[in-house]
Each structure stands twice: as structure tokens, then as C-alpha cells.
């Protein structure tokens, strides 16, 4: 469909004897909401860690927008447009909600280097931060330190900080874990809208099959570091290998799922 954003070639990773990524050759296209699923220990987080630079690549190669980024440091990948959120909340606890999103907003320009001007007088930056907080539903708590937010708000902020970097390709690592249904709906709504706007392409790691099947246009199934299946939700649901792997785990979720949304 769209242009290819990121491709990997024979990406592999081992922790001791355990293989967490085996010769993964994948590509991610612009605008296609993708979910990565698989049993625990399948290598989902490892894959994100490799693609975003959290883990050094042991073998294989990664290209993003036509440039090799295999060994590029994290912050330069972010500047090129790859960002992520974390499974465990990983924000700036001592800073206010607004300051949390201001850091990525400022870092997109050289403004972050200014040592004498005031953050509070940076109208453009604050406006952008405000719009973002409005979008994720945190503008009511903009002055609260992150450390005193509720768990659900923290999860929203986690995604908000990642979005504030204005990524082209955004990996969300279990974004809805621990959210109540209202917060979850808000977040998923955001993903849909932003995805439709077309600036950001989302790739999610999810356990919740409701989320996976209602949101994704493409699903990657990983198992023990290998790519088991890659296709549309329908194709994945009817794949024999996937059934085998998921036997006894998440079975009800995966196979009793029926698409309830009218869309």
C-alpha cells in the first residue's frame, strides 16, 4: 500500500543460549496499524528493543527511510522518526505532566539547547504540548508532578511522551496494560485518529486480543524469536501454526473473538 518505512534483514539476537530473535526479515509500511503478538517470551519486546536501539544488534541489519540504522544511537533514531513507549511506566517522575511532554517537543528543534530563554515563554512549544495533552486527555492535570498521577493517567502520559516526539513510526509496548475501559477506549481512539491523520504509523505489542483484532490491519505472530505468521487478522486467525502455539494460552480470547464493531 504505502511506502516502506522500516525493513529488517536477518535480525538475530541471543541471550546466552536463548534465542530471542532468529533471522527476522520484516518490513513496516506507512499507515498500516500492526500488532505483534505471541506467547510470553516470544521475543516481542526484544524486537522493539532492537528496532529502537535499546539493545545492540548482534547480527542482521535495519533500514529506516532508506538509511541503515543498525548501529545508530537511540536519540538519532528518534530524531529520524522512530519512537516507543514502554511496558512499565517510564516517564520523568519528578517533573510535571506538561514538562514531561515539553522535553520531546523541545528536542525536535535546537530550542532544547537554549540556556537562557525561559521554557514558560516558549509559546509555540507550550501550545503544542497543550494540544497533545488535550488529545491524550491529560490537560486537566498538566501541572501535577508525574509521580502523583493515577496509574491510568501514567499510562496515558507514557504514550503522550512518546507521541510528543512526533514519530513517523511509533512502537507501543502493551500500551493498555492496567487501564480501565474508559482510558483504554480513549487511547485506542487516539491511535485510530492519529493513524488516520497519517503522520504516525503504529506498531503495538499487545496481549489483549480485543485490542489486537479491533485495531490492527496486520498481525505478526512471534514464537521463540521466530516469525510464525504475518498477515491480516483473518489470515492469522485461521492459521494452523498459530492455533498450535496458542493452545492452552489465550485460546478463548483468540478464537472466540467476533468482530463486534460496526466499522
Amino acid at each position: 500500500m504505502g511506502e516502506t518505512l522500516l525493513t529488517t534483514r536477518k535480525l538475530s539476537n541471543h541471550f546466552g543460549m536463548v534465542c530471542t530473535a532468529r533471522e527476522l526479515s520484516l518490513s513496516f509500511e506507512k499507515g498500516v496499524v500492526t500488532s505483534i503478538i505471541g506467547p510470553n517470551g516470544a521475543g516481542k519486546s526484544t524486537l522493539i528493543n532492537l528496532l529502537t536501539g535499546h539493545l545492540p544488534v548482534q547480527s542482521g541489519r535495519i533500514d529506516f527511510l532508506g538509511r541503515e540504522i543498525t548501529r545508530m544511537p537511540i536519540h538519532r533514531r528518534v530524531r529520524m522518526g522512530i519512537c516507543r513507549s514502554f511496558q512499565v511506566v517510564n516517564v520523568f517522575p519528578g517533573l510535571t505532566v506538561e514538562e514531561n511532554v515539553m522535553i520531546p517537543v523541545l528536542s525536535r528543534s535546537m530550542r532544547a539547547w537554549r540556556p537562557i530563554t525561559r521554557v514558560s515563554r516558549d509559546a509555540a512549544g507550550r501550545e503544542e504540548a497543550e494540544a497533545l495533552l488535550e488529545k491524550v486527555g491529560l490537560s486537566g492535570v498538566r501541572g501535577t508532578p508525574a509521580s502523583s498521577l493515577s496509574h491510568g493517567d501514567l499510562r496515558l502520559l507514557e504514550v503522550g511522551v512518546a507521541l510528543a516526539a512526533a514519530p513517523t513510526l511509533l512502537f507501543l509496548d502493551e500500551p493498555t496494560a492496567g487501564m480501565n475501559p474508559v482510558e483504554r477506549e480513549r487511547l485506542l481512539g487516539n491511535v485510530r485518529t492519529l493513524s488516520r491523520e497519517g503522520k504516525t504509523t503504529f506498531v503495538l505489542v499487545e496481549h489483549d486480543m480485543d485490542v489486537v483484532f479491533s485495531l490492527s490491519e496486520r498481525i505478526l505472530v512471534l514464537h521463540r524469536g521466530e516469525l510464525l505468521c504475518d498477515g491480516t487478522p483473518e489470515a492469522v486467525r485461521s492459521d494452523a501454526k498459530v492455533r498450535e502455539v496458542y493452545l492452552g494460552e489465550d485460546v478463548s480470547d483468540l478464537f472466540r473473538y467476533t468482530r463486534t464493531e460496526a466499522e
Binding site: 529502537t52 544511537p73 537511540i74 536519540h75 538519532r76 528518534v78 530524531r79 519512537c83 516507543r84 514502554f86 517510564n90 516517564v91 520523568f92 517522575p93 519528578g94 517533573l95 514538562e99 515539553m102 522535553i103 520531546p104 523541545l106 528536542s107 525536535r108 530550542r111 532544547a112 539547547w113 537554549r114 540556556p115 537562557i116 530563554t117 525561559r118 521554557v119 514558560s120 516558549d122 512549544g125 511522551v161 512518546a162 510528543a164 516526539a165
Partner: peptide, 27 residues
Amino acid sequence: RIRISPFGLVLSGIRENARRTEYAGIP
């Protein structure tokens, strides 16, 4: 002025969570 500047904000980001600051695109 440094403390209340963008530069200072980034510095406190580094103090609070250096890894996340990298993911904000900060060297």
C-alpha cells in the same frame, strides 16, 4: 535562567530518567 530554560528542563529530564530522555531525541 539555566534552571528555567529549555536546556535546564532537559537536564532535569536527564536526572529523572536518562533513558527516556534519549527516547525524546536528546543526545
